[in-house]
Design a protein around this nucleic acid. Structure first.
Lengths: 106, 106
DNA sequence: TTATTTTTGGACAATATTTGCTTAAACATA
DNA sequence: TATGTTTAAGCAAATATTGTCCAAAAATAA
């Protein structure tokens, strides 16, 4: 069992797929993408996109928001991994988002 | 006076420049980039890069880390602005970064 | 073992995005 | 006005991403 933070998006969807004993071939076909592309997504060597995430959500019956949170947090993590001030950057981004939200409520 | 969250990176460096009454022309020359490129950076229509951020840090005597935090938090904010779960995504990213840090300490 | 299926990695063209630059117009100020 | 400053649009070159194919590697079944 893995906490969400201890596993990448790719590893996560591979887990889901293997739990159901589905080959890449089948899932890729459902998603209408190449087998090797899905393989790469599971190894975090290619990006997923909205459409793929939706498809995965249906195939594995996982809330789309859960997948999105996993996917996007991965992307951000990767961007900040070499930064000294990663955590601080996230805190400031949080403030900025809250500020924007508040503004848009007016 | 603006809190960091209430102002973009571009607006921030424009403020710095105007406080010192420097024209784009001069700052751009110091940074060795085109005037119109700097104009766009200040309007958040172009990306800055490491070199430009370093240059700005010297010109305005601001800690490079301060500029980087501002710049990168802006980028992340922009990525998440249309997401329902922006804040949650940041929280998860934070956990992931902490996990990575902890792992790399071993 | 051999045969079959699954997974991976490399390559490639097509597309999309970013960059650096030029130019001219808009704007501001003296 | 005229002079300096800022902006917008456009463009080619560079860079990155995408979708696809294929063959080799790895895993599994016979």
């Amino acid at each position: 069992m893995s906490k969400i933070a201890n596993i990448t998006f790719g590893e996560y969807i591979r887990q889901l797929r293997e739990e159901e004993n589905l080959p890449l071939r089948k899932v890729a076909a459902e998603l209408d993408i190449d087998t090797s592309t899905l393989s790469k997504i599971e190894k975090n060597e290619r990006n997923a996109n909205e459409q793929i995430i939706e498809g995965l959500s249906k195939i594995f019956n996982i809330e789309i928001s859960v997948l999105k949170v996993h996917y996007l947090s991965d992307k951000i993590t990767y961007q900040l991994l070499d930064e000294e001030n990663g955590i601080e950057i996230l805190k400031v981004a949080e403030q900025k988002i809250k500020y924007h939200k508040q503004q848009s409520e007016k």
